[in-house]
């Protein structure tokens, strides 16, 4: 659980390092063992989205996705870090292919007796709308690779914010062996603006920050058992928790495999009454499930 930042003294407050503040590349660097970071398919390979310029959007030479290799706590690791500041971290053809290929490579390595710890740093609104079907296809590939890979090695996901993790990539997050969030992070299938647009402001007011975080925020997701760890926005703490998660190994049953349990829980909910957010944690809590 969380260390209350309110109890830190000024010196600790001045020296701690925010993870949210960092770019995707800086995040990957900050988590890997010092001096071990190297990037695959980096910006100098110029793997850019061919679709964005056609729509008047300036592409980025890494398509907003960093594939980093190195070691984490001395063990081989690969980090797939999404850059939330580029196109909202959206998954396009190129960035999606980079993720899928890296997962497949890790699966291949694992099957050949060379386990690599795979960490996803999720900061994404989901499929990149400008690349529609290609982005969707990429997410399908990513998710099937996730299912295959996680049999061999644990796959850990971190949702730190401030973009959050939405859309198709929220499914990817749900497929992780272990998921770690900050309270600033958000996780949900449809983003607040999408819900408001589809169902009206009475259903979901996307400008009501308190409501949004009460539904999608890290604290709620942790209370409801959809994530395994809630951590302060602090590089050192997040690194510790990631290492700890890998140390737990492959879970005997992934959350996404507990279909029967979830269905059972759904069946017990009285849908004749409007559900209140504050009751949600109790209805879905991890303790009930395990």
């Amino acid at each position: 659980m969380m260390t209350p930042a309110n109890r830190l003294d000024p010196k600790q407050l001045l020296t701690r390092k925010s993870f949210i503040e960092l770019s995707a590349r800086e995040r990957a660097k900050a988590l890997l063992d010092e001096g071990t970071y190297r990037e695959l398919l980096g910006p100098f390979e110029r793997l850019e989205s061919p679709w964005l310029p056609m729509q008047g959007v300036v592409p980025q030479s890494d398509d907003g996705l960093i594939v980093a290799r190195g070691t984490l706590s001395g063990k081989d690791a690969a980090i797939l870090a999404i850059e939330g500041r580029f196109q909202g971290g959206s998954t396009g053809e190129v960035s999606g292919a980079k993720i899928a290929a890296a997962l497949e490579l890790a699966q291949h390595d694992a099957e050949n007796g060379w386990p690599v710890q795979v960490l996803l740093l999720l900061e994404t609104g989901g499929v990149r709308l400008q690349e529609a079907n290609l982005g969707l296809e990429a997410i399908a590939e990513i998710n099937s690779s996730m299912v295959a890979l996680r049999e061999h090695v644990p796959v850990v996901g971190v949702i730190s914010g401030m973009v959050g993790c939405f859309g198709g990539m929220a499914i990817t997050a749900a497929l992780c062996s272990y998921l770690i969030m900050t309270r600033q992070g958000r996780l949900g299938l449809n983003g607040p603006e999408v819900i408001e647009e589809q169902s009206g402001i009475e259903e979901f007011d996307s400008s009501d920050r308190q409501l949004i975080w009460a539904v999608n925020g890290g604290e709620q997701r942790y209370a409801a058992g959809f994530v395994d760890d809630l951590v302060e926005d602090d590089v050192k703490l997040i690194r510790e928790r990631v290492i700890e998660a890998f140390g737990r190994g492959v879970p005997c049953r992934h959350r996404s495999e507990q279909v029967e349990d979830y269905l059972e829980r759904l069946a017990t909910i009285d849908v004749t009454h409007q559900l209140e957010i504050r009751h949600f944690g109790r209805l879905w809590s991890k303790r009930v499930l395990s």
Partner: peptide, 26 residues
Amino acid sequence: LAAKSIEDLVAWSGGLYKPPARFRSW
């Protein structure tokens, strides 16, 4: 920056600062 977010300001205040909902990202 000694504080990079409203959360940091709350932490600095030892929890005494209670920001209005519109400034909260948690």
